[in-house]
Amino acid sequence: MAVSETPPASEAQSIPKPPPAWLSILRMLYRDKFALCAAIFLIVVVFCAVFGPMLLGEAATDQNLRGRNTPPFDFSQHWTMWLGGDALGRPLLARIIVAAQNTMMIAAGAVLASLIIGTTLGLVAGYTGKAASQVIMRLADVIMSFPSLLLAVIVLYMLEPAVGNLIIVLAITRIPIYLRTSRAEVLEVRERMFVQAAQVMGASTFRIVFRHILPVVAPTLITIATLDFAFVMLAESSLSFLGIGIQPPEITWGLMVSQGRSYLTSAWWLSFWPGLAIILTTLSLNLLSNWMRTALDPVQRWRLEISRKKK
């Protein structure tokens, strides 16, 4: 855990036998029931994303024209039909589970790419000289002042709307967030004593930035990334909803909502369930990120640890 390398943790080590970092984090998570539910739900979603297409890929594309727009909650049918069937009689639940893979993959890819690129650029802009920093910040300004959804629309209209391109587009629009945050943090952290100590001891710039500064900045960035994951998911859904994201037969939740739109008055469940899946996932991410903001911050962590002693 990167947290254990931050300076306040070294003070904690003088206290006899601290429990391992991951154990205390798990304990804190268990205490916050909202965050716990969120974490469990996210694990389920990730499980669906990884194994869903393997287990249910067949069932999700299995058309049954007699079962078109089957209403939900008919428990006499196979369990994949419990949430109803879509316009071609395919089981909605199975399709939602399978669609989790594309939805998650695009969001995760975009967040990871923008996190890595944005943080690296931000560290460079914050720690090194003015010229590089100016160029990087102006570039970020250009991206920030641009309506990100429209940038995505133009680029996707130009390129094929495939998973890879969608990831690239979404990543580009999110880079400035990490860039600005990490730069702002570095500007503050580089003035601290331990950075000066490292400089005096002759550590290379590379070492100072990545071994000394990055671990201090990391918790903030990870929290933002969790929040941003939700944002990217919503952005991808919007794109797919507008018809310029993922193209059928590939499916994502956003695309499913848009496909159900034409049956809105006769079969509400086609759009409702995938939308609910989006809400629950983004809500879980928001809850978890809220919890992480406190749990990963050494200054605020006592709030979570104190409440344990009360009970």
């Binding site: 919007s238 759009s271 809400i279």
Partner: peptide, 21 residues
């Protein structure tokens, strides 16, 4: 939190179904 997590297009079409249709 729920509000910040909701996809607006989904809210929009659910609202149309409920309040308009």
């Amino acid at each position: 939190l729920v509000g910040a997590s909701a996809p607006d297009f989904w809210i929009a079409i659910v609202a149309i179904v409920i309040f308009s249709v």
